[in-house]
Design a protein around this nucleic acid. Structure first.
Lengths: 106, 106
DNA sequence: GGCATGGGTAAGCGTAGCCTTACGTAAGTG
DNA sequence: CACTTACGTAAGGCTACGCTTACCCATGCC
């Protein structure tokens, strides 16, 4: 998901179900490129397809979204816990929480 | 940060300040490779260096960590808000929150 | 001063990944 | 049945990037 085009495709999809051509219009890449990105997103379980005549409607899969969320949170809290533990180990806990600003909303 | 080795380097650093050689030991890559990863992390503001004799001690920069957190949260909530809005627009809000499981801890 | 230790940097290689063009295919339309 | 529309897929090119080897610099130690 580190690619800009891929994020753009995904954000378009976050606004609602769309066909491949609709996504390709407005993006500076060709339609097959979008198709390939959609394949990756589908293999990752982030997106599902439904056939509608000759078109394929892609939309975000909430389940995959949640899985991604869990994965990221896992990595994050893991690193963070280790870091916090190390920080508290060296410096005596004057500030128990070492400058981690924004708490996630929602 | 999508690279595995880079994450490994970062996680090692999350456990406390370390020298370059210490990180390279236990990782399946050479020391210069680690050095390059550290350079990237430093340019990203995620890590800071302090000289200690002939060695360089790297450690996580809490400020950069917070910035990364903010960036990720921004992207996340943005996509999520759009997705939720679209979902509520199509389906009448029987369930106002469309299956977004884990809330982030801490 | 001479040597060892710890690291950064340059040059080059190999691969992964994104994109394009070209082509093939299923579903509508007359 | 042609023809069009909306896709997917294959093949190839190009670039980015991670890794290694080789080299150079700084610091500590005798």
């Amino acid at each position: 998901m580190g690619d800009g085009t891929r994020r753009a495709v995904f954000e378009r999809l976050a606004q609602g179900p769309r066909a491949v051509g609709d996504i390709a219009d407005g993006l500076p890449v060709s339609r097959p490129a979008v198709s390939q990105h959609l394949r990756v997103l589908r293999d990752a379980g982030l997106v599902v397809v439904t056939k509608d005549g000759t078109r394929r409607l892609y939309e975000v899969d909430p389940g995959g979204l949640g899985a991604l969320r869990r994965y990221l949170d896992g990595f994050w809290t893991e690193s963070l816990a280790a870091f916090k533990a190390a920080a508290e180990a060296t410096a005596p806990p004057a500030t128990p929480n070492p400058t981690i600003p924004t708490e996630p909303p929602s």
